[in-house]
Structure formats: structure tokens, C-alpha cells
Computed example of a mutant assay.
Amino acid sequence: MTWTSFHRRGEVLRDVIASANRRRDGRLPMELTGVAETFGDELVLLGALQLRWHTRLAGRIERELLAEPMELEDAVVAAWHATADELPGVRAILDRERTAPSTPASSAAMAKATAKEHVLLAMMAGRVSTPDDAAARVGAEIEDRARATYRPAPLPADEPSTLLGRLKAVVAA
């Protein structure tokens, strides 16, 4: 991958994430300009979004653990909540692909990624010490707790109703 294609991929992925976060409908935005040319197919884009979620979650967990080193599981749950607030559209896409995968390949990819995420949650919460099936089960319990206690951030207000939104609309016209 060349430097130019690397940067182009990053730009397109940012556009995909922004669109997904606005829509929050759980569908991959394959219709966006540059997506098909950059990622090729849905599975590759899904993998990129899964990687973005996983790395953001891992970073959030690290920051939360710095703030609450004695309450490890609470910190992990808080990190899951914060990541879901930062990437609500990505989370919706991943959830949709987990529950109703579009292809057998995406089903397999999501199963593997989910198991790895569960292991991460369990290990960072200090509940297990080895990345095995038991860790995946414990991590699933932690994710269930995070989901049960999650209160999504409200959708942003329609921008044109704000002063800044009205100014942007006037300048764009």
C-alpha cells in the first residue's frame, strides 16, 4: 500500500464512520464515494470497522483503568459505554452483523472478532488470566452488563436549528 492509498483509505474510513454515526441504522454505507474502490467489498469494510471499534475500545479501557485502578470491571464497562458513545453507528453495524450476518464469511469474521473482544474485556477487568474459552464467556458477561447499563447519548440536534448550523447553511447557499 502506498502512502497515498494509505491516506485515502483513512479518509474514506472516516467518511464511513461519520455517515454510520449519523445514520445509526446498522447498514454498511457502501454507497459513499470511494468506498467500493478503497475497500472492495463489504467484508473488508466490516473488518476495518471492527478493527476501529476494537482499538478504540482497548485505548478507552487503558484510560479508564488509569482513573479507576481498583474497580477494574467498572472501568471496563465505563470504557465500553464511552466507546459506544463515540462510535454509535459502528456499534450498530457490528451488532447487526452479529445478529443477522449478511454472508457466511461475515458471520465467521464477527464470531471470531466477538470472541477476541470478550477475551479483552475479561482480561482487562482482571477476571481471567488466560485467553481461553472461559475468558470469552466471562467477557460476554461483562459485555452483557455494559449493554444492560448503557444509556445511549442522544442524537445530535438538527444542525440548521442552531446558530452555527444556520450560518453554515447560509454560507453553503
Results as ranks from 00 to 15, higher is better:
Leu43Arg: 12
Met123Pro: 04
Arg147Ile: 14
His81Gly: 03
Thr55His: 13
Pro152Thr: 08
Gly40His: 02
Ala48His: 13
Arg96Gly: 03
Ala58Met: 11
Ala75Asn: 00
Thr162Cys: 02
Ala148Gly: 14
Asp85Trp: 06
Val128Ala: 08
Ala105Lys: 14
Pro104His: 04
Leu87Pro: 02
Ser129Arg: 12
Glu159Tyr: 11
Ala153Ser: 14
Glu64Thr: 05
Gly59Phe: 08
Glu68Phe: 04
Ala146Phe: 02
Pro69Trp: 02
Leu164Asn: 11
Val77Cys: 03
Asp41Thr: 12
Pro160Val: 03
Asp95Asn: 08
Leu45His: 02
Glu143Ile: 00
Ala125Lys: 01
Arg96Met: 01
Glu37Ala: 14
Leu66His: 14
Met110Ser: 09
Ser106Gly: 05
Thr83His: 01
Leu94Met: 02
Glu68Lys: 11
Ala84Leu: 07
Phe39Trp: 03
Leu66Asn: 12
Ala157Cys: 10
Thr55Val: 15
Pro156Gln: 11
Ala36Thr: 11
Val119Pro: 08
Ala82Lys: 03
Leu87Trp: 03
Leu49Val: 07
Pro154Gly: 04
Ala148Glu: 15
Glu141Pro: 07
Thr83Gln: 01
Ala135Leu: 06
Leu66Ala: 11
Gly139Gln: 01
Thr130Gly: 05
Leu46Lys: 02
Asp133Leu: 10
Ala36Asp: 06
Pro131Cys: 09
Leu49Gln: 04
Leu163Cys: 03
Arg137Cys: 10
Thr130Phe: 08
Leu57Arg: 00
Ala109Lys: 10
Glu64Tyr: 02
Ala100Asn: 11
Ala82Tyr: 01
Ala115Phe: 05
Glu159Thr: 10
Asp158Val: 09
Glu62Leu: 13
Ala48Val: 03
Ala36Arg: 13
Ala153Pro: 06
Arg63Phe: 04
Leu163Met: 09
Ala111Leu: 10
Ser129Trp: 08
Arg60Thr: 09
Ala75Tyr: 00
Arg137Ile: 13
Leu66Pro: 05
Ala100Leu: 07
Ala153Met: 12
Asp132Thr: 05
Thr38Ala: 04
Ala153His: 14
Thr103Met: 03
Arg63Trp: 06
Leu66Cys: 10
Pro156Lys: 11
Glu42Ser: 14
Ser106Val: 05
Glu97Ala: 01
Ala148Pro: 13
Arg151Tyr: 11
Glu143Met: 09
Phe39Lys: 00
Gly47Ile: 04
Arg91Lys: 12
Ala140Leu: 12
Leu57Val: 02
Leu43Ala: 12
Thr55Gly: 07
Asp158Lys: 05
Ser102His: 06
Val35Pro: 01
Asp74Ala: 10
Thr149Tyr: 10
Ala78Pro: 01
Ala75Met: 00
Leu87Thr: 00
Leu49Pro: 06
Thr103Glu: 08
Pro69Gln: 05
Ala58Tyr: 07
Leu164Ala: 15
Ala111Cys: 07
Arg56Ile: 03
Val76Asp: 00
Leu66Trp: 14
Ser107Asp: 13
Pro160Ala: 02
Leu72Phe: 04
Ser107Gly: 14
Met70Gly: 11
Arg151Trp: 13
Val119Asn: 07
Gly59Ile: 10
Pro101Thr: 08
Arg52Thr: 15
Pro101Tyr: 07
Arg96Leu: 01
Thr99Ala: 15
Ala122Glu: 03
Arg63Pro: 02
His54Asp: 15
Glu37Asp: 15
Pro69Lys: 06
Leu72Met: 08
Leu51His: 15
Gly47Lys: 09
Arg137Glu: 15
Pro131Glu: 14
Ala140Cys: 09
Ala58Val: 09
Glu42Thr: 06
Ala146Tyr: 01
Ala78Thr: 06
Ala135Asn: 09
His118Asp: 08
Thr55Trp: 10
